[in-house]
Design a binder for these strands. Structure first.
Length: 426
RNA sequence: GGAGAGGUGGCCGAGCGGCUGAAGGCAACUGCCUGCUAAGCAGUUGGGCGGGUUACCGUCCCCCGGGUUCGAAUCCCGGCCUCUCCGCCA
């Protein structure tokens, strides 16, 4: 969540952030609730103060042996205690109203983020060049079928539409890619994490999937647990409620998980093959940064995700998202998109975000500056490094041959026992 | 799933109805001392919220949520988590 002081001091800034992110504007409601909450607190503090004084007088009177006085004071204190309870009830309600509103305010986009919808996104650069074919390139569905790597019908058979099933060298390549990516990140100082694939409500709220995206997640009501839509949730929440040591910052984590998204309401878009599925694998990068360093960390995080694609020699581009296209919790987002020649389009495989203190405020992740002074919130960042299904799509489509085979990228071959090519199984 | 033990500050750990935001220790910081290091001596050091221009004042916080009481870290109820034993199981 954002700092209430920003709303108090600069409501217009917050209002325009809501407008630019297409979020409902509750700023005025918050200001009203805030004033109400503060008034009730002042009143309650005063009442409690008097109650404490009285009640210590009761104790003193009993200790002094003056029973009569003690009983008299006690009766007074009882009356005061009742009014404190009544007021606390009102205070709790006001507090609840206030925080329920505050949690709906999106993060404020950074100054250098373009304002507008997706059409205002800025393509920053392209890396590599699109593969050239002297034949009509096939798409990943054909290749997956021909080479026995992908079967959407079998996925649907066991789980339903939108669940993929990889087989043979498709499954092997997926596994090899995960290992390769984790190695690349480990060499750059990221600590590998294998977290739970489920998370509780508090964790989901900490990283801001709740309240906005609650309906997009698979939920188990018995335990109030959610299947994670991204490893960002369990990994960022590793340090929830903690006071970190400044000398340990920045902290880098890399984790592989499966990810689960209901994708409710997205039927009709990207429904074919691996482009948008309910369950997919991903390697995720998460950073906890000193607030003074998070913009540098954001750039190096982007570079880290790019390392994977460069190692695989894939054609990609980096896009700076406009306000209307970025997520609720982020202040600035780069997307990395891979070129998929069979689809003839760019596919998002990574989203690289700086959340500043938006998540750490919710999850209460702080540090105490060594120079003394106020406890501060750390900054959190994350990036996919990278998402598997679309990476497979881009590899298959980019590395296909006229013979209908798929070459294995050189960097990946050690992870596949030296295999160079995927051919139809006989 | 059954039985027991426990969850206290940055960390360890005492307290088990009022004088406790919390002993003691560790750690950190500041002085003194010391040729450096170490040790020693003295002192300082939690967080949230609210109020005041500052020094400051008030309130809340001893896993979480309720309750009893004039008053709760301390008593009662519910939940979560950790540990030990038994059962079951990839």
């Amino acid at each position: 969540m954002i700092d209430i002081n920003i709303i108090r001091e600069n409501p217009e800034l917050v209002k325009s952030a809501c407008a630019n992110k297409n979020e409902p504007d509750v700023v005025d409601e918050i200001l009203t609730a805030d004033a109400e909450r503060r008034a009730l607190q002042a009143e309650g503090d005063e009442l409690r103060h008097r109650q404490k004084e009285l009640s210590s007088q009761v104790g003193a009177a009993f200790a002094g042996g003056d029973r009569e006085l003690a009983e008299k004071l006690k009766a007074e204190a009882k009356a005061l205690s009742d009014s404190v309870k009544a007021l606390e009830e009102k205070q709790r309600e006001a507090e609840t109203r206030w925080s329920a509103l505050l949690i709906k305010v999106p993060n404020i986009p950074a100054d250098d983020v373009p304002v507008g919808d997706a059409s205002a996104n800025v393509i920053l650069r392209e890396w590599g060049s699109p593969p050239k074919f002297d034949f009509e390139p096939r798409d990943h569905i054909d290749l997956g079928d021909m080479l026995g790597m992908l079967d959407m019908e079998l996925g649907a058979k066991v789980a339903g539409s939108g669940f993929s099933l990889l087989a043979g060298d498709g499954a092997r390549m997926s596994r090899a890619l995960i290992a390769m990516m984790l190695d690349i990140h480990r060499e750059s100082g990221f600590l590998e994490i294998a977290p739970p694939f489920l998370a509780n409500r508090q964790a989901m709220t900490g990283t801001a999937q709740i309240p906005k995206l609650e309906g997009d997640m698979y939920h188990f009501p018995e335990e109030d647990l959610f299947l994670i839509p991204t490893a960002e949730v369990p990994i960022t929440n590793l340090h929830a409620g903690e006071m970190l040591r400044e000398e340990n910052l920045p902290i880098y984590y890399a984790g592989y998980t499966a990810n689960f998204r209901r994708e409710a309401g997205s039927y009709g878009a990207d429904t074919r093959g691996l482009l948008r599925v309910h369950q997919f694998d991903k390697v995720e990068l998460v950073k906890f940064s000193h607030p003074d360093k998070s913009w540098e960390e954001h750039e190096s995080l982007l570079a880290q995700a790019e390392k994977v694609l460069q190692a695989l020699e894939l054609h990609y581009r980096v896009v700076l998202l406009a306000t209307g296209d970025m997520s609720f919790a982020s202040a600035k987002v780069y997307d990395i998109e891979l070129w998929a020649p069979g689809e003839g389009r760019w596919l998002e495989v990574s989203s690289c975000s700086n959340f500043l203190d938006f998540q750490s405020r919710r999850a209460n992740i702080r540090f105490r500056p060594e120079s003394g002074g106020q406890v501060q919130f750390v900054h959190t960042l994350n990036a996919s490094g990278v998402a598997l299904p679309r990476l497979l799509v881009a590899i298959w489509e980019s590395y296909q041959t006229a013979r209908g085979t798929v070459q294995i990228p050189r960097a990946l071959r050690p992870y596949m026992h030296g295999q160079e090519e995927i051919s139809p199984r006989l």
